[in-house]
């Protein structure tokens, strides 16, 4: 049963996910050479749309698919049986709980275990998709992971445009080319505050790199 799921996952990845992202959506990608070849690694991205996970996963080859684990909120993605099967079996998410009071141990323990297995995590430290095309402050869980596994590379990845193609709260998908830039990898910096401000700084630089050019002659630009 498990092997069958894995085959189905690979098939959907090659026949649906990859062509969809490349042709129906379209990605303007910069810095592909900075993408980690193998785990353990932490891919840290901003979050505007459900498309984000799909776009990030299709950056990799089907051979890397088994070791690719998006980290997602359990309360949202496991809320019914169908979604649970889809999230766990097809997407391969690591569910975590956003509500600390409910859980027993540290909510990020499953992530550490995955890193120890040499897997690559996709992490959205904003914690939610939020307002489209606006970045919320990062939560500190990513610092906890980097501190607990100090040899693991942290790779910042900045996405733009997915929040306009499929924003939160809307079911209507309107195609548009998305912009994506992969930054230089770094590791634990020594203290949590320093690590978080380093991460925010790197994101600000990447955001500037993919920002659409200003269009002053245009009244929609407000």
């Amino acid at each position: 049963m498990k092997a069958l799921g894995q085959i189905l996952r690979s098939l959907l990845f090659l026949a649906v996910a990859k062509p969809f992202v490349a042709l129906v959506l379209g990605v303007d990608l910069r810095g592909r050479e900075r993408l980690p070849k193998k785990g353990p690694a932490l891919l840290v991205a901003n979050h505007n749309s459900h498309l984000d996970t799909l776009v990030l996963m299709t950056l990799f080859s089907v051979r890397q698919l088994p070791g690719l684990r998006p980290v997602a909120a359990g309360d949202y993605f496991l809320r019914n049986r169908l979604l649970r099967w889809f999230s766990l079996r097809l997407v391969g998410v690591i569910p975590i709980t956003r509500n600390h009071a409910v859980s027993g141990g540290h909510p990020l323990t499953p992530c550490l275990e995955a890193l120890d297995r040499g897997e690559m995590l996709i992490l959205f430290p904003e914690g939610s998709r939020g307002e489209p095309e606006a970045r919320a402050p990062f939560k500190r869980g990513v610092a906890h992971l980097a501190k607990s596994r100090q040899e693991v590379r942290v790779v910042p990845v900045c996405l733009g445009g997915t929040g306009l193609a499929l924003p939160r709260g809307e079911a209507l998908f309107v195609p548009r080319v998305c912009r994506l830039v992969i930054g230089e990898a770094f590791t634990w910096t020594g203290d949590t505050t320093g690590f978080m401000s380093e991460l925010e700084d790197r994101f600000a630089a990447l955001e500037a790199e993919i920002a659409p050019p200003p269009f002053p002659s245009h009244p929609n630009m407000t």
Binding site: L23, G26, P132, G161, L164, P167, E170, L172, V174, P175, R176, V177, P212, F215, H218, N220, M221
Partner: peptide
């Protein structure tokens, strides 16, 4: 035509409200 129109749409700073008309 689809690829070209999508490219055109992506170059222009359309707003969230314009999505429905674009569809």
């Amino acid at each position: 035509s689809y690829l070209a129109f999508k490219e055109y749409v992506s170059l222009i700073p359309f707003r969230r409200v314009d999505r429905r008309a674009l569809f």
